[in-house]
């Protein structure tokens, strides 16, 4: 009658994907501000690529990579819990998995402009 206990940390894990999104958002916005303040957009490091662009794109890739890891780990937990079942464990793990996918998409959509927009104007 009473569900099998799931660690309270799994509640936090339900937010993991969006925590990565938040960290990525803060990191890119902060690095953009620092770069613009110190003229990184005028320092060329890889042919015609500015230091600013390289750092921002690298951060985006790290963010997407981390987000993908959260998706994969969530998927493994979800499968181990029995897929999309209605009991506690599958519920918690599938919410975490769906939220991780949503967060990964959000990262790409909201931070993707570092790939093509001018950075400091």
């Amino acid at each position: 009658m009473i569900a099998e206990r799931v660690s309270a940390w799994r509640i936090a894990w339900m937010m993991a994907g969006f925590v990565v999104w938040s960290a990525a958002f803060v990191a890119l916005y902060s690095v953009l501000s620092v770069g613009c303040a110190f003229g990184w957009d005028e320092i060329l490091v890889m042919g015609s690529l500015s230091l600013q662009r390289v750092v921002l794109v690298a951060l985006l890739l790290v963010s997407l990579g981390t987000g993908w890891v959260v998706v994969r780990v969530s998927a493994i937990h979800r499968e181990a819990a029995g897929g999309a079942g209605l009991t506690l464990k599958p519920f918690v793990e599938s919410v975490a998995w769906l939220a991780a996918w949503a967060a990964l998409g959000s990262t790409l959509f909201s931070l993707g402009p570092v790939l093509f927009l001018t950075s400091c104007y």
């Binding site: 953009l32 959000s106 959509f109 993707g112 001018t118 950075s119």
Partner: peptide
């Protein structure tokens, strides 16, 4: 604010409509 930063917030503002 730089256009790129505006793009972050513009995209997130549009994105919130989905959930």
């Amino acid at each position: 604010i730089p256009h790129l930063a505006l793009a972050f917030f513009s995209a997130a503002s549009a994105l919130v409509a989905i959930p």
